[in-house]
Design a protein around this nucleic acid. Structure first.
Lengths: 189, 189
DNA sequence: ATCCCAAACTAACAGTTGTTAGTTTGTAGT
DNA sequence: ACTACAAACTAACAACTGTTAGTTTGGGAT
Protein backbone atom coordinates (compact mmCIF):
# COMPACT_ATOMS: atom_id res chain seq x y z
CA UNK A 1 0.00 0.00 0.00
CA UNK A 2 0.96 3.60 -0.51
CA UNK A 3 1.79 5.98 2.29
CA UNK A 4 -1.47 6.49 4.15
CA UNK A 5 0.35 9.00 6.31
CA UNK A 6 -1.03 12.14 4.72
CA UNK A 7 -4.61 10.93 4.92
CA UNK A 8 -4.13 10.07 8.56
CA UNK A 9 -2.74 13.53 9.20
CA UNK A 10 -5.86 15.05 7.68
CA UNK A 11 -8.12 12.88 9.80
CA UNK A 12 -6.18 13.71 12.92
CA UNK A 13 -6.28 17.43 12.21
CA UNK A 14 -9.98 17.27 11.39
CA UNK A 15 -10.75 15.34 14.57
CA UNK A 16 -9.03 18.02 16.61
CA UNK A 17 -11.12 20.74 14.99
CA UNK A 18 -14.31 18.66 15.23
CA UNK A 19 -13.76 18.40 18.96
CA UNK A 20 -13.49 22.17 19.33
CA UNK A 21 -16.43 23.26 17.18
CA UNK A 22 -18.31 20.19 16.01
CA UNK A 23 -18.45 18.64 12.54
CA UNK A 24 -20.88 21.13 11.02
CA UNK A 25 -19.01 24.23 12.14
CA UNK A 26 -15.68 23.04 10.70
CA UNK A 27 -15.12 23.78 7.02
CA UNK A 28 -12.79 22.07 4.60
CA UNK A 29 -10.94 25.40 4.48
CA UNK A 30 -10.52 25.26 8.27
CA UNK A 31 -8.95 21.82 8.03
CA UNK A 32 -6.73 22.84 5.13
CA UNK A 33 -5.55 26.03 6.85
CA UNK A 34 -4.67 24.05 9.98
CA UNK A 35 -2.44 21.90 7.77
CA UNK A 36 -0.95 24.84 5.89
CA UNK A 37 -2.46 23.91 2.53
CA UNK A 38 -5.49 24.83 0.39
CA UNK A 39 -8.88 23.15 0.72
CA UNK A 40 -8.79 21.66 -2.77
CA UNK A 41 -5.55 19.86 -1.94
CA UNK A 42 -7.33 17.79 0.67
CA UNK A 43 -9.13 15.94 -2.11
CA UNK A 44 -5.90 14.35 -3.27
CA UNK A 45 -6.13 12.25 -0.11
CA UNK A 46 -9.76 11.98 0.92
CA UNK A 47 -12.93 11.76 -1.11
CA UNK A 48 -15.22 13.95 0.99
CA UNK A 49 -15.75 15.64 4.33
CA UNK A 50 -18.21 12.89 5.13
CA UNK A 51 -15.53 10.24 4.66
CA UNK A 52 -13.39 11.92 7.32
CA UNK A 53 -16.22 11.72 9.82
CA UNK A 54 -16.91 8.11 8.92
CA UNK A 55 -13.25 7.13 9.37
CA UNK A 56 -13.10 8.79 12.77
CA UNK A 57 -16.31 7.36 14.15
CA UNK A 58 -16.59 3.86 12.72
CA UNK A 59 -13.08 2.75 13.66
CA UNK A 60 -13.72 3.80 17.25
CA UNK A 61 -17.16 2.22 17.40
CA UNK A 62 -15.71 -1.04 16.12
CA UNK A 63 -12.92 -0.92 18.68
CA UNK A 64 -15.48 -0.69 21.46
CA UNK A 65 -17.50 -3.54 20.01
CA UNK A 66 -14.43 -5.76 19.75
CA UNK A 67 -13.40 -4.94 23.30
CA UNK A 68 -16.86 -5.75 24.59
CA UNK A 69 -16.87 -9.13 22.82
CA UNK A 70 -13.65 -9.98 24.58
CA UNK A 71 -15.06 -9.05 27.98
CA UNK A 72 -18.34 -10.85 27.38
CA UNK A 73 -16.64 -14.12 26.56
CA UNK A 74 -14.22 -14.03 29.49
CA UNK A 75 -14.98 -16.06 32.60
CA UNK A 76 -14.62 -13.48 35.34
CA UNK A 77 -16.88 -11.99 38.02
CA UNK A 78 -19.37 -9.22 37.30
CA UNK A 79 -17.29 -6.69 39.21
CA UNK A 80 -14.26 -7.68 37.17
CA UNK A 81 -16.25 -7.30 33.97
CA UNK A 82 -17.36 -3.81 34.95
CA UNK A 83 -13.75 -2.98 35.75
CA UNK A 84 -12.75 -4.29 32.33
CA UNK A 85 -15.36 -2.11 30.63
CA UNK A 86 -14.05 0.92 32.50
CA UNK A 87 -10.51 0.09 31.44
CA UNK A 88 -11.65 -0.39 27.85
CA UNK A 89 -13.09 3.12 27.78
CA UNK A 90 -10.11 4.69 29.49
CA UNK A 91 -7.63 3.02 27.15
CA UNK A 92 -9.43 3.81 23.90
CA UNK A 93 -10.20 7.35 24.99
CA UNK A 94 -6.67 8.07 26.19
CA UNK A 95 -5.38 7.13 22.74
CA UNK A 96 -7.85 9.30 20.84
CA UNK A 97 -9.57 12.03 22.80
CA UNK A 98 -10.28 14.03 19.65
CA UNK A 99 -12.05 11.21 17.88
CA UNK A 100 -14.13 10.42 20.94
CA UNK A 101 -15.67 13.88 20.73
CA UNK A 102 -16.99 13.07 17.25
CA UNK A 103 -18.19 9.66 18.37
CA UNK A 104 -20.23 11.28 21.11
CA UNK A 105 -21.41 14.46 19.46
CA UNK A 106 -21.32 14.11 15.68
CA UNK A 107 -22.59 10.61 14.92
CA UNK A 108 -25.93 12.08 13.81
CA UNK A 109 -24.14 13.72 10.91
CA UNK A 110 -23.10 10.37 9.49
CA UNK A 111 -24.94 9.80 6.24
CA UNK A 112 -24.51 6.27 4.89
CA UNK A 113 -23.21 4.72 8.11
CA UNK A 114 -25.52 6.16 10.72
CA UNK A 115 -27.54 2.96 10.80
CA UNK A 116 -24.43 0.83 11.15
CA UNK A 117 -23.12 3.04 13.94
CA UNK A 118 -26.41 2.87 15.83
CA UNK A 119 -26.46 -0.91 15.48
CA UNK A 120 -22.98 -1.13 17.00
CA UNK A 121 -23.93 1.26 19.75
CA UNK A 122 -27.16 -0.53 20.61
CA UNK A 123 -25.36 -3.86 20.62
CA UNK A 124 -22.72 -2.49 22.94
CA UNK A 125 -25.28 -1.13 25.37
CA UNK A 126 -27.24 -4.38 25.32
CA UNK A 127 -24.08 -6.32 26.14
CA UNK A 128 -23.27 -4.00 29.02
CA UNK A 129 -26.81 -4.32 30.28
CA UNK A 130 -26.63 -8.10 30.24
CA UNK A 131 -23.47 -7.92 32.36
CA UNK A 132 -25.29 -5.83 34.98
CA UNK A 133 -28.40 -8.01 34.77
CA UNK A 134 -26.41 -11.16 35.36
CA UNK A 135 -24.56 -9.54 38.25
CA UNK A 136 -27.83 -8.82 39.98
CA UNK A 137 -29.19 -12.31 39.35
CA UNK A 138 -26.03 -13.84 40.79
CA UNK A 139 -26.15 -11.39 43.69
CA UNK A 140 -22.73 -10.01 42.86
CA UNK A 141 -23.86 -6.39 42.84
CA UNK A 142 -26.62 -4.41 44.55
CA UNK A 143 -30.20 -4.70 43.42
CA UNK A 144 -30.83 -1.18 42.14
CA UNK A 145 -32.48 0.27 39.05
CA UNK A 146 -30.65 -1.33 36.12
CA UNK A 147 -31.40 1.46 33.64
CA UNK A 148 -30.12 4.17 35.95
CA UNK A 149 -26.99 2.20 36.84
CA UNK A 150 -26.15 1.72 33.17
CA UNK A 151 -26.90 5.35 32.39
CA UNK A 152 -24.76 6.58 35.24
CA UNK A 153 -21.71 4.48 34.44
CA UNK A 154 -21.83 5.01 30.69
CA UNK A 155 -22.36 8.76 31.08
CA UNK A 156 -19.17 9.00 33.07
CA UNK A 157 -17.22 6.81 30.65
CA UNK A 158 -18.49 8.73 27.62
CA UNK A 159 -17.34 12.01 29.12
CA UNK A 160 -13.76 10.81 29.62
CA UNK A 161 -12.67 12.51 26.40
CA UNK A 162 -13.25 15.85 28.10
CA UNK A 163 -11.50 14.99 31.32
CA UNK A 164 -8.41 13.07 30.26
CA UNK A 165 -6.77 15.92 28.28
CA UNK A 166 -7.00 18.17 31.35
CA UNK A 167 -5.14 15.67 33.53
CA UNK A 168 -2.33 14.29 31.46
CA UNK A 169 -0.30 13.44 34.53
CA UNK A 170 -2.73 10.69 35.51
CA UNK A 171 -1.84 7.32 33.99
CA UNK A 172 -4.58 5.23 32.36
CA UNK A 173 -4.08 2.50 34.94
CA UNK A 174 -4.40 4.90 37.84
CA UNK A 175 -7.46 6.50 36.28
CA UNK A 176 -9.12 3.14 35.66
CA UNK A 177 -8.54 2.07 39.24
CA UNK A 178 -9.84 5.31 40.73
CA UNK A 179 -12.88 5.30 38.48
CA UNK A 180 -13.66 1.68 39.29
CA UNK A 181 -13.51 2.46 42.96
CA UNK A 182 -15.91 5.40 42.72
CA UNK A 183 -18.34 3.86 40.25
CA UNK A 184 -18.51 0.58 42.14
CA UNK A 185 -18.33 1.75 45.76
CA UNK A 186 -19.67 5.28 45.51
CA UNK A 187 -18.46 8.13 47.67
CA UNK A 188 -19.92 6.82 50.92
CA UNK A 189 -17.79 6.49 54.03
CA UNK B 1 -45.05 44.11 28.12
CA UNK B 2 -46.12 42.79 24.79
CA UNK B 3 -46.83 39.13 24.11
CA UNK B 4 -43.44 37.42 24.31
CA UNK B 5 -45.21 34.25 23.31
CA UNK B 6 -44.06 34.15 19.70
CA UNK B 7 -40.43 34.71 20.59
CA UNK B 8 -40.60 31.96 23.15
CA UNK B 9 -42.12 29.63 20.57
CA UNK B 10 -39.20 30.32 18.26
CA UNK B 11 -36.69 29.64 21.01
CA UNK B 12 -38.43 26.44 21.98
CA UNK B 13 -38.57 25.23 18.39
CA UNK B 14 -34.94 26.15 17.84
CA UNK B 15 -33.83 24.38 21.01
CA UNK B 16 -35.54 21.21 19.81
CA UNK B 17 -33.71 21.36 16.50
CA UNK B 18 -30.41 22.30 18.18
CA UNK B 19 -30.67 19.17 20.28
CA UNK B 20 -31.08 16.96 17.21
CA UNK B 21 -28.37 18.42 14.99
CA UNK B 22 -26.44 21.02 16.93
CA UNK B 23 -26.49 24.80 16.56
CA UNK B 24 -24.30 25.00 13.46
CA UNK B 25 -26.23 22.42 11.46
CA UNK B 26 -29.59 24.11 12.06
CA UNK B 27 -30.45 26.92 9.65
CA UNK B 28 -32.87 29.76 10.13
CA UNK B 29 -34.87 28.16 7.32
CA UNK B 30 -35.03 24.93 9.34
CA UNK B 31 -36.44 26.79 12.33
CA UNK B 32 -38.90 28.71 10.17
CA UNK B 33 -40.11 25.60 8.36
CA UNK B 34 -40.67 23.83 11.67
CA UNK B 35 -42.94 26.72 12.63
CA UNK B 36 -44.70 26.84 9.28
CA UNK B 37 -43.38 30.28 8.31
CA UNK B 38 -40.55 31.77 6.23
CA UNK B 39 -37.07 32.46 7.57
CA UNK B 40 -37.32 36.22 7.15
CA UNK B 41 -40.41 36.29 9.37
CA UNK B 42 -38.38 35.11 12.33
CA UNK B 43 -36.68 38.50 12.42
CA UNK B 44 -39.92 40.19 13.47
CA UNK B 45 -39.37 38.49 16.83
CA UNK B 46 -35.67 37.87 17.29
CA UNK B 47 -32.64 39.87 16.25
CA UNK B 48 -30.31 37.04 15.19
CA UNK B 49 -29.63 33.32 15.34
CA UNK B 50 -26.99 34.08 17.92
CA UNK B 51 -29.56 35.71 20.20
CA UNK B 52 -31.59 32.48 20.22
CA UNK B 53 -28.59 30.51 21.40
CA UNK B 54 -27.79 33.10 24.05
CA UNK B 55 -31.35 33.07 25.40
CA UNK B 56 -31.33 29.27 25.64
CA UNK B 57 -27.97 28.90 27.31
CA UNK B 58 -27.64 31.88 29.63
CA UNK B 59 -31.02 31.46 31.31
CA UNK B 60 -30.16 27.84 32.11
CA UNK B 61 -26.66 28.64 33.31
CA UNK B 62 -28.05 31.31 35.62
CA UNK B 63 -30.65 28.91 36.97
CA UNK B 64 -27.89 26.48 37.93
CA UNK B 65 -25.86 29.22 39.56
CA UNK B 66 -28.83 30.42 41.59
CA UNK B 67 -29.64 26.88 42.69
CA UNK B 68 -26.06 26.31 43.77
CA UNK B 69 -26.04 29.52 45.85
CA UNK B 70 -29.09 28.26 47.70
CA UNK B 71 -27.46 24.91 48.43
CA UNK B 72 -24.16 26.46 49.46
CA UNK B 73 -25.75 28.69 52.03
CA UNK B 74 -27.95 26.00 53.56
CA UNK B 75 -26.88 24.31 56.78
CA UNK B 76 -27.14 20.65 55.91
CA UNK B 77 -24.77 17.70 55.76
CA UNK B 78 -22.46 17.06 52.82
CA UNK B 79 -24.49 14.08 51.71
CA UNK B 80 -27.62 16.19 51.79
CA UNK B 81 -25.89 18.88 49.76
CA UNK B 82 -24.88 16.36 47.13
CA UNK B 83 -28.45 15.10 47.05
CA UNK B 84 -29.65 18.68 46.61
CA UNK B 85 -27.27 19.19 43.67
CA UNK B 86 -28.57 16.02 42.07
CA UNK B 87 -32.14 17.20 42.54
CA UNK B 88 -31.25 20.61 41.11
CA UNK B 89 -29.98 18.99 37.91
CA UNK B 90 -32.89 16.61 37.61
CA UNK B 91 -35.46 19.36 38.10
CA UNK B 92 -33.94 21.87 35.69
CA UNK B 93 -33.25 19.22 33.09
CA UNK B 94 -36.71 17.66 33.32
CA UNK B 95 -38.23 21.07 32.55
CA UNK B 96 -36.00 21.78 29.55
CA UNK B 97 -34.26 18.78 28.01
CA UNK B 98 -33.88 20.58 24.68
CA UNK B 99 -32.12 23.58 26.13
CA UNK B 100 -29.78 21.39 28.14
CA UNK B 101 -28.42 19.94 24.92
CA UNK B 102 -27.34 23.41 23.81
CA UNK B 103 -25.90 24.18 27.23
CA UNK B 104 -23.74 21.07 27.02
CA UNK B 105 -22.83 20.99 23.35
CA UNK B 106 -23.18 24.43 21.81
CA UNK B 107 -21.82 26.88 24.37
CA UNK B 108 -18.65 27.28 22.32
CA UNK B 109 -20.71 28.91 19.59
CA UNK B 110 -21.69 31.75 21.89
CA UNK B 111 -20.06 34.92 20.65
CA UNK B 112 -20.43 37.83 23.08
CA UNK B 113 -21.44 35.74 26.11
CA UNK B 114 -19.00 32.85 25.96
CA UNK B 115 -16.84 34.45 28.63
CA UNK B 116 -19.81 35.07 30.88
CA UNK B 117 -21.02 31.50 30.43
CA UNK B 118 -17.61 30.07 31.26
CA UNK B 119 -17.40 32.24 34.35
CA UNK B 120 -20.74 30.90 35.56
CA UNK B 121 -19.70 27.37 34.77
CA UNK B 122 -16.35 27.63 36.51
CA UNK B 123 -17.96 29.19 39.54
CA UNK B 124 -20.48 26.39 39.68
CA UNK B 125 -17.81 23.72 39.50
CA UNK B 126 -15.72 25.45 42.14
CA UNK B 127 -18.72 25.55 44.46
CA UNK B 128 -19.41 21.87 43.93
CA UNK B 129 -15.80 21.09 44.55
CA UNK B 130 -15.80 22.97 47.83
CA UNK B 131 -18.81 20.90 48.95
CA UNK B 132 -16.89 17.69 48.28
CA UNK B 133 -13.70 19.07 49.82
CA UNK B 134 -15.50 20.02 53.00
CA UNK B 135 -17.20 16.64 53.15
CA UNK B 136 -13.83 14.92 53.13
CA UNK B 137 -12.39 17.25 55.75
CA UNK B 138 -15.35 16.60 58.00
CA UNK B 139 -15.12 12.89 57.31
CA UNK B 140 -18.64 12.77 55.96
CA UNK B 141 -17.68 11.05 52.71
CA UNK B 142 -14.90 8.73 51.61
CA UNK B 143 -11.39 10.03 51.04
CA UNK B 144 -11.01 9.42 47.30
CA UNK B 145 -9.68 11.47 44.43
CA UNK B 146 -11.66 14.74 44.51
CA UNK B 147 -11.21 15.53 40.83
CA UNK B 148 -12.45 12.14 39.70
CA UNK B 149 -15.40 12.20 42.07
CA UNK B 150 -16.49 15.57 40.76
CA UNK B 151 -15.96 14.50 37.18
CA UNK B 152 -17.94 11.31 37.66
CA UNK B 153 -20.96 12.91 39.31
CA UNK B 154 -21.13 15.92 37.01
CA UNK B 155 -20.74 13.74 33.92
CA UNK B 156 -23.78 11.77 34.92
CA UNK B 157 -25.82 14.86 35.78
CA UNK B 158 -24.86 16.60 32.55
CA UNK B 159 -26.04 13.63 30.52
CA UNK B 160 -29.51 13.64 32.07
CA UNK B 161 -30.92 15.54 29.11
CA UNK B 162 -30.37 12.45 26.99
CA UNK B 163 -31.83 9.99 29.44
CA UNK B 164 -34.91 11.74 30.84
CA UNK B 165 -36.82 11.98 27.53
CA UNK B 166 -36.45 8.22 27.05
CA UNK B 167 -38.02 7.47 30.44
CA UNK B 168 -40.92 9.84 30.83
CA UNK B 169 -42.67 7.48 33.23
CA UNK B 170 -40.03 8.08 35.91
CA UNK B 171 -40.91 11.04 38.16
CA UNK B 172 -38.21 13.62 38.97
CA UNK B 173 -38.39 12.69 42.65
CA UNK B 174 -37.95 8.99 41.95
CA UNK B 175 -35.09 9.69 39.55
CA UNK B 176 -33.33 11.97 42.04
CA UNK B 177 -33.60 9.35 44.77
CA UNK B 178 -32.33 6.52 42.59
CA UNK B 179 -29.47 8.61 41.26
CA UNK B 180 -28.47 9.73 44.75
CA UNK B 181 -28.38 6.14 45.87
CA UNK B 182 -26.14 5.01 43.01
CA UNK B 183 -23.83 8.02 42.95
CA UNK B 184 -23.37 7.99 46.72
CA UNK B 185 -23.33 4.28 47.49
CA UNK B 186 -22.16 2.81 44.19
CA UNK B 187 -23.33 -0.53 42.86
CA UNK B 188 -21.61 -2.65 45.47
CA UNK B 189 -23.48 -5.29 47.42
C1' DA C 1 18.89 14.14 -18.24
C1' DT C 2 14.37 12.09 -18.27
C1' DC C 3 10.28 10.29 -16.50
C1' DC C 4 6.95 9.63 -12.96
C1' DC C 5 3.87 10.77 -9.63
C1' DA C 6 2.43 12.31 -5.18
C1' DA C 7 0.88 16.47 -3.65
C1' DA C 8 0.39 20.91 -3.93
C1' DC C 9 -1.79 24.80 -6.60
C1' DT C 10 -5.50 28.32 -9.10
C1' DA C 11 -10.00 29.12 -10.62
C1' DA C 12 -14.42 28.25 -10.64
C1' DC C 13 -19.13 26.01 -9.84
C1' DA C 14 -23.78 25.69 -7.90
C1' DG C 15 -26.04 25.61 -3.72
C1' DT C 16 -26.69 27.37 0.99
C1' DT C 17 -26.08 30.66 4.70
C1' DG C 18 -27.77 34.65 7.89
C1' DT C 19 -29.80 38.75 7.20
C1' DT C 20 -32.07 43.15 5.27
C1' DA C 21 -35.52 46.03 2.87
C1' DG C 22 -39.77 46.82 1.57
C1' DT C 23 -44.59 45.10 1.17
C1' DT C 24 -48.96 42.74 2.20
C1' DT C 25 -52.26 40.73 5.35
C1' DG C 26 -55.49 40.06 8.96
C1' DT C 27 -57.45 41.39 13.09
C1' DA C 28 -58.68 44.29 17.25
C1' DG C 29 -60.01 48.82 18.92
C1' DT C 30 -62.02 53.20 17.81
C1' DA D 1 -65.53 52.38 8.04
C1' DC D 2 -60.90 53.61 9.62
C1' DT D 3 -56.73 53.16 11.79
C1' DA D 4 -52.93 50.78 13.90
C1' DC D 5 -49.97 47.25 14.28
C1' DA D 6 -48.18 42.63 14.90
C1' DA D 7 -46.75 39.28 11.95
C1' DA D 8 -46.53 37.30 7.91
C1' DC D 9 -44.74 37.72 3.06
C1' DT D 10 -41.36 38.25 -1.53
C1' DA D 11 -37.01 39.34 -3.30
C1' DA D 12 -32.57 39.94 -2.89
C1' DC D 13 -27.66 40.43 -0.97
C1' DA D 14 -22.86 39.13 -0.08
C1' DA D 15 -20.41 35.72 2.03
C1' DC D 16 -19.42 31.08 2.54
C1' DT D 17 -20.05 25.99 1.62
C1' DG D 18 -18.20 21.34 -0.39
C1' DT D 19 -16.38 19.98 -4.44
C1' DT D 20 -14.42 19.57 -9.36
C1' DA D 21 -11.25 20.39 -13.26
C1' DG D 22 -7.16 21.31 -14.90
C1' DT D 23 -2.35 22.81 -13.89
C1' DT D 24 2.17 23.30 -11.61
C1' DT D 25 5.81 21.72 -8.64
C1' DG D 26 9.58 19.16 -6.85
C1' DG D 27 12.05 15.16 -5.51
C1' DG D 28 13.27 9.92 -6.39
C1' DA D 29 14.11 6.22 -9.64
C1' DT D 30 15.59 4.99 -14.20
Amino acid sequence: MKSETRKEEIIKTAAKLFKEKGYSAVTMRDIATAMGIKAASLYNHISSKQEILKDIIISLAEAFTEGMQQIKSSHISTIQKVQAVIKLHVDITAKNTYGMASLNNDWMHLEDERGYYLALRNGYEADFRSIIDEGMRRNEICNGNVEIIIFSILSTLRSLYLWIPKKEDVSPQELSDNLSSILISGINK
